[in-house]
């Protein structure tokens, strides 16, 4: 180990945002959730909106997010985060509100709430973490699970005959008039992390201007659920998930 780095005039260039608590995260080693949690809090820190932000995290791996995010938060029932966020925002229009939902939450049990929240153009940020599996409950099939992908409830691989097709909900909601900014990112590489941060920044800025729903899908990994090492899971993500869920902006604000 290199012990001593005696560089003159050392400058701090990166540290954990102050808006993140010191509680160690419960996420499995290498899980993308930690990075996404951190990015949201970095943006909140930089925009200085810690005192004006309410986060909503539902059942799933997101459920203990309130332990890490040093902001006021509401834990929502499974699938209902966007309805809960709607409630918060409608009676507190001056606050910044975001929901943070997994694929099972947002695209299966909460599909109705997702579609209608976006359709009303609720002035919130919806973060959709898609890792194509139910992580918290032990690796069951998600609506976004790929054809052939093995999970504990599709042990021989997801079949179209039995389970239908992977649900591409982000493209679906992007067609709704209430959607203002819809984009898809990942956190498996340093540059993708940088891009996601910019998208979160933009979304909060749009929210300030009451533009409508901002929706960010993050393609993430689930090393434990997929049964892979973190490194392998990121490779698998790049080879399999991203071709099905291509990264980039899906709906961008039209320039006036």
């Amino acid at each position: 180990m290199i012990n001593k780095c005696e560089i003159e005039d050392l400058e701090l260039v990166y540290e954990k945002p102050k808006t993140l608590t010191d509680t160690p995260m419960h996420y499995c080693p290498g899980c993308g959730h930690g990075v996404i949690n951190k990015l949201i809090m970095e943006v909140i820190d930089e925009l200085k909106i810690q005192d004006k932000t309410v986060g909503v995290a539902p059942v799933g791996c997101a459920v203990f997010e309130y332990r890490y995010m040093d902001i006021d938060m509401i834990e929502a029932p499974h699938g209902r985060a966007s309805a809960v966020a709607t409630g918060v925002k409608r009676v507190n229009p001056d606050k910044y509100v975001f929901s943070y939902q997994g694929d099972g939450d947002l695209a299966a049990i909460g599909t109705s709430e997702t579609i209608h929240t976006v359709n009303r153009g609720e002035n919130i940020l919806m973060l959709f973490i898609n890792n194509a599996i139910y992580g918290m409950t032990g690796g069951q099939m998600a609506p976004t699970t790929l054809i052939g992908q093995k999970t504990s409830t599709s042990p021989f691989g997801r079949s179209v005959k039995n389970n239908g097709f992977p649900l591409n909900i982000t493209e679906l909601i992007s067609k709704l008039d209430g959607a203002f900014y819809v984009t898809r990112h990942s956190v498996h590489k340093p540059n993708s992390v940088r891009k996601l941060k910019k998208a979160i920044q933009k979304s909060f800025e749009y929210q300030k201007e009451n533009k409508g729903t901002c929706f960010i899908e993050v393609i993430s990994n689930c090393p434990a659920g997929w049964g892979m090492t973190p490194l392998k899971s990121n490779e698998w993500l790049e080879e399999n998930l991203i071709p099905k869920y291509p990264l980039g902006d899906i709906k961008v604000p039209t320039k006036n």
């Binding site: 209902r80 809960v84 409630g87 109705s112």
Partner: peptide, 13 residues
Amino acid sequence: IAAINMVYGAAGS
């Protein structure tokens, strides 16, 4: 279902 969860969020605030 959505209505009661909106109540939940708003009451929580």
